[in-house]
Amino acid sequence: MSSLSSVQAPNQTRPARKARFRVWFALPSMLLVGFFFVVPFIANAVLSFTRWTGFSNTITFNGLTNFRQMFSLGILVHSTLVTIGFAVTTMAVQNLTGLALAKALQQSNRVNSVFRTVFFLPVLMSPLAAGYIWSAVLDPHGPVNSFLSLFVRGDFTYSWLGNQHSALLAVGFVDGWKWCGLVTLVYIAGLNSIPRQVVEAAIIDGAGAWRRFRSIEVPLLAPAFTFNIVVTLVGSFSALDVIFATTKGGPGDATSVLNVAVYRQYGQGLFGTSSSLSFMIALLVIATAVPLITYLRRREVTA
C-alpha cells in the first residue's frame, strides 16, 4: 500500500500545481476586477440604502427611502426612460453606420486602410472634445444648418441641441459617431472571418450581393452582432461626458440621463440618493445585458 501511495502522490499533486499556476496568471485580473468593480459595486449597493448627505457627518440606513424619493420626484422614471432612449439611439447609429462602413471598407488595401484610420480617429478623441466640436457643428448658425440652408428658402437655423424633441437624438448621434469606428473594426473582422468558399459557392449559385449579405454574411456575423450590440447598448447606459459637453442634460431635462441625475444629486450633497441612482444604472445594465447576451448567443448557435 505504502509503495502504491508513494507512486500516486506525484500524479495527484500535478493537477493541483497546474491549477495553482493558472491562479497566479488570473490573480492580477481578479484583483483588478475585485478592486475596481466588486468593491465599488458592493459599496454603492450598501450606500444606496443609507441617508448619506453632506449636511451630516453620520450615515444611517434608511431602507428604500432614497428610491421612493427619486420615484416621487419623477427623476427615476424620467431619467431611466431618457437613458434607454439615448442608449437605443446610440446603439442603432453605431451598428447601422458601423456595418455599412465595414462593408464599404472590408477589403484590405491601402485606400481602405487610410479610411479605416480616419473613421477610427473619433474613438481616440476625448468625449468632451467630441461634444464641444459637435456643439459648434450643430449650432443654429453652424455648418450643418449652413449646408441645409442651400436647399431651403432663407436661413435654416434649427436648434438641434436646443429643441427638446431633437436634442436626445442629436446627442445619441454624436455619441454614436464617437464610437462608430470601434464597431466598424469588429464588423470588418467578422466579415473577413466568413469562409471564402461559402461566399464563392453562393456566387456560383447565382446569389446577388444583397442576397449574399442577407443570407450568408448577416447570419455568420452573429458573434460580431452579439459583441457590438451588447457593448454599444450597455456602454451607453453609463454615458455622461458627451451629454455634458453638448446639452448638460438640457434643454430642461430632455437629455437628463441617469448619470446626469446622479451628478446633480451628488452636486447638492445628496450622496445617498446619488448612490441609489448609480445602483439603478448597475441594475439596468444587468437587466439588459444578461437576457440580451443569452438571446444573442442562442442566435449564434442557430446560425
Partner: peptide, 11 residues
Amino acid sequence: QLALSVLVGQA
C-alpha cells in the same frame, strides 16, 4: 435647469 425649461417652452 427648471428656469431653462420655462425659457425653452418645456414647462
